[in-house]
Design a protein around this nucleic acid. Structure first.
Lengths: 360, 360
DNA sequence: TTGAAAGCGATACCAT
DNA sequence: ATGGTATCGCTTTCAA
């Protein structure tokens, strides 16, 4: 217990530096001496250099901090987030770097953000954190390298921003909504994750331009763009906030759209997970997706294919991997540090032409 | 740049202690002074106490190290591992504790284990790491609290073991194999994850008692127990190693069982992920699961239900949560620190009575 | 190849 | 309520 570099050095009869070298620079001393030192260390129960002391001195930790969604454990329910994390892990493990998953307090209260403040990391990767979260300010203030991958504008303001990897959210959303509009839908509901806040699920009365959370905001604006372009009356468009990116919440949100007199004929969600919930809500009410009500998602998680969900496919693992690479090996060329990845419209069975009978 | 506690203290005209208190013990100084200090700190661009220095001094990091599978990024492909991690995250986020995901070198080579050695954490949670991995020795030597949750014997030897959370692997496997044997199957193949090593997929000639990796070993031994009890000749049982817990690898392993003259009538795998691969292999060969060949998994991941896989259900999220709780709030009662969770045999469509025609 | 000395940046205890 | 002081454990020049 309590063995330290000093203890070992004393026992062996060498200086601290030498013991330190035995661990961190094997080439700086004779193999025999090193062996002797390591043996003594083992006998003394010296656990090796103290990680905190070591990183304090070296100024490096070999870990990157990950803010995965405003709600860490919830993130693991979203296959897309998991895939992103997998990509990040791939990049990290290739470089012997650990990933520090930092939990955010559910309320984002000042004092509760210690975990972000005290995170011993060399850089941060931020994924799906609403831009108004205080955690971002802290990260910004710490001045470490950051890869956001969402709002180019916001991450552009982070002092340590090293790059960006994302997609053209709005354009992709536009294509999806254009597809829906082309099928004749005019009464539409849009379900957005955190478009207003992170606590209440239900209809909101906000102009799309005001939505703050970048990802959902852009997607909703993309939907709006396309609907307006198709001549849809915005008064016929219901906007619903989802307090969590969760299937159950998606179902709840859909309820607000379905259980009203002038039921909409299409429901567009800002994620597949929410859309799966929407499908659940339809099932409960005996409505057929693609016939009675058209439904779309966003991400193209594996389950989307399984249930025939029309959606936008975006890279997941790759996106995480690139984020990690940007952080760990920032390319010299600034151009190469701004990556906009391609997306694809995937039309499946949950969207179909407007059905005159059930919409009347 | 480079602002430190000292800098701030000098500017404000107070001592370091006071500045430190302003951050870590707000109640130790007047609100006005604190406000003044924080303001100056902000102006100076002082990012807050240096995490490494802080944890060096306090002897605490507020992070727990996670060894998730021998292959971190691969772990994210396994829904069971992800669920476990979710539970762990739930426990951690409730206690403002971060999770340090530590990558293991693929070869488990000495030098490459720095990440484990240098991990700044207060404790370790080890999940699905083969017992012969050097990483475990290092963890053991560091003497930090550990929750293994797999091999009670091995974790029992870890100096810092604080508890155990797992299932009765062997008993569960026995029930599963008994079900298969009761259906009349006598020529059986067992596919085990890492039962010999982590590099080659294919038949192995090892006695079940010799298998080293605890989890798979116990499951295989459980299978064996039940088969022998049912009068199966062990000479008719093929043992196949899977180099990775991966669907593709499962399919590959199944190939070794299916593409031989005396094709087996049942294939038992040590995980659902592998079993899904087995089903793929059957499909490719035009064989019907539950009719031509019976197939079983282990874990009961969501996809198992979707494809009708017969399997053993074991708690996932809960298991991770308990592991986290054991680490973060070890119960005083030693009894309460040894948790064996219940499992259930879930019979679905992939197992059926032996089919005389195709087995002849 | 090895050792001596100087921090890295912060916190805790004890006074005041 | 604040300040002084010792110390946490290690790495890193630089000199021998």
């Amino acid at each position: 217990m309590g063995a330290t570099l000093q203890t070992v050095a004393d026992q062996v009869g060498v200086s601290r530096s030498t013991v330190s070298n035995a661990y961190s620079r094997p080439d700086q001393l004779s193999p025999e001496l090193r062996a002797r030192i390591l043996a003594v260390a083992e006998r003394l129960g010296y656990p090796g250099p103290n990680p905190s002391a070591r990183s304090l001195r070296r100024g490096k930790v070999d870990a990157i901090g990950v803010l995965l969604t405003a709600n860490l454990s919830m993130a693991f329910r979203d296959p897309y987030a998991v895939a992103y994390l997998r990509g990040l892990a791939e990049a990290a493990e290739q470089r012997k770097t650990s990933l520090l998953l930092i939990p955010l307090p559910h309320n984002d209260q000042e004092g509760a953000l210690d975990a972000v403040r005290n995170a011993a990391v060399d850089a941060f990767c931020v994924y799906c954190v609403p831009d108004w979260f205080k955690a971002l300010e802290i990260i910004n203030f710490r001045g470490l390298p950051v890869v956001g991958g969402e709002d180019p504008a916001i991450t552009g303001q982070l002092s340590g921003e090293v790059g960006f990897v994302g997609i053209d959210e709005r354009k992709a959303a536009r294509r999806l909504a254009a597809h829906v509009a082309a099928l004749g839908h005019r009464r539409v509901a849009l379900i957005g994750h955190w478009i207003t806040d992170t606590s209440v699920t239900g209809p909101v009365d906000v102009h799309p331009d005001e939505l703050r959370y970048y990802v959902s905001g852009e997607r909703v604006r993309g939907f709006r763009d396309a609907l307006v372009a198709a001549g849809v009356d915005l008064a016929d468009v219901v906007l619903i906030n989802a307090a969590e990116n969760d299937r159950l919440v998606g179902a709840e949100a859909a309820g607000h759209a379905l259980d009203r007199q002038d039921r909409c004929t299409a429901i567009l969600s800002t994620s597949d997970v929410l859309a799966l919930g929407v499908l659940d809500a339809l099932a409960v009410r005996g409505l057929r997706p693609g016939r009675d009500v058209s439904v779309t998602g966003f991400d193209d998680i594996p389950e989307a294919a399984a249930v025939g969900l029309t959606t936008i496919r975006q890279p997941s693992v790759e996106r995480g991997r690139i984020a990690g690479e940007l952080l760990l090996d920032p390319p010299a060329d600034p151009q190469a540090r701004h990556r906009v990845l391609p997306t694809t419209l995937v039309v499946r069975a949950t969207t179909g032409p407007i059905n005159q009978e059930s919409s009347s």
